[in-house]
Design a protein around this nucleic acid. Structure first.
Lengths: 152, 152
DNA sequence: GTTGAGTCTGTAGTCAGGTACGGAAGTAAG
DNA sequence: CTTACTTCCGTACCTGACTACAGACTCAAC
């Protein structure tokens, strides 16, 4: 099949596949002289593999590591990657739960507030919440990490 | 105080403050002719406010919205923003918990596996996991969103 | 009065994971 | 055989939240 068909079957854009090729996650099949590259079931399987790994939270870099272990004979190393990712995910959950409970509390206080001139949320943002928040830098993802990382 | 002192007190870099100024989140105080800008407690308070809001998961764009409501007299709008963010956060938690349980299960199966030539994790990535994963595009953050978003 | 640190301003680079585009060449349908 | 779609390839752009740097200027200490 052509790259367009492959993309359709994998449910992704042609450009995404090309991007994976550039990153070395997907092989670039031989091109017949002055012709067009053709892809087989293996290429599709690989795209599925990548998608699945991403779905579990692995970055493309990590997917690359997993692909090196793709033959299934390095169970320990694979498990180590998965365990590490599991810790990652759990750390993020802890961070998000902190957000959740604080937000929930704030919203609740806001609902019960009788003074419409002094919103409890704004008040908290001005007074309580900024203690020891120095390390919540970068973007949302890293923010979560930073909130819970042991080594900065 | 100068911007360097302000940065130190807020626990952030000078460049970050300048970035916030460019984004219109922090005011640029008047500069005396051929002199240097000075900042006061209000500037510091604003930086704390921004940090706190970020800690709750608000993006800088959303922080901008919150800052418009900073006088505390628009309790309903503020609460609406917080409720929306709370939903956001809960959606992300749901996504992460899916990852967590799948990873946990995979790691467990890997530990109990007796066939070191056929790693259950790799096997799953090849066969099970890629059903209906079409919408887990973009980066990790959006991936989480996509997994749980109702409106794509 | 000179040295070194801090400030100002503008612009460019970083990361991840793509997305978009332009121009040339190949391919499929009528 | 023409028209319209794909493919190929390289490069540039996108988001978000910074981070870095160059060159000119100012300020405080010695």
């Amino acid at each position: 099949m052509t790259i367009g068909t492959l993309a359709k079957m994998a449910g992704m854009h042609v450009e995404t596949i090309r991007y994976y090729q550039r990153r070395g996650l997907v092989a670039l099949p031989e091109k017949p002289y002055g012709g067009i590259r053709r892809y087989d079931e293996n290429a599709l399987a690989r795209l599925h593999f990548i998608r699945s790994a991403q779905w579990l939270g692995f970055s493309l870099e990590e997917v690359g590591e997993l692909l090196k272990l793709e033959d299934g004979t390095h169970c320990d190393e694979t498990r180590a990657l998965a365990e590490h990712k599991l810790e990652d995910v759990r750390r993020k959950i802890v961070g998000l739960k902190q957000m959740e409970s604080t937000l929930d509390d704030l919203v609740e206080r806001c609902r019960c507030s009788t003074d419409p001139q002094n919103c409890p949320i704004i008040h908290s943002l001005h007074t309580d919440l900024h203690q020891d928040r120095r390390s919540c830098a970068n973007n949302n993802r890293d923010q979560l990490d930073a909130r819970t990382d042991t080594q900065p």
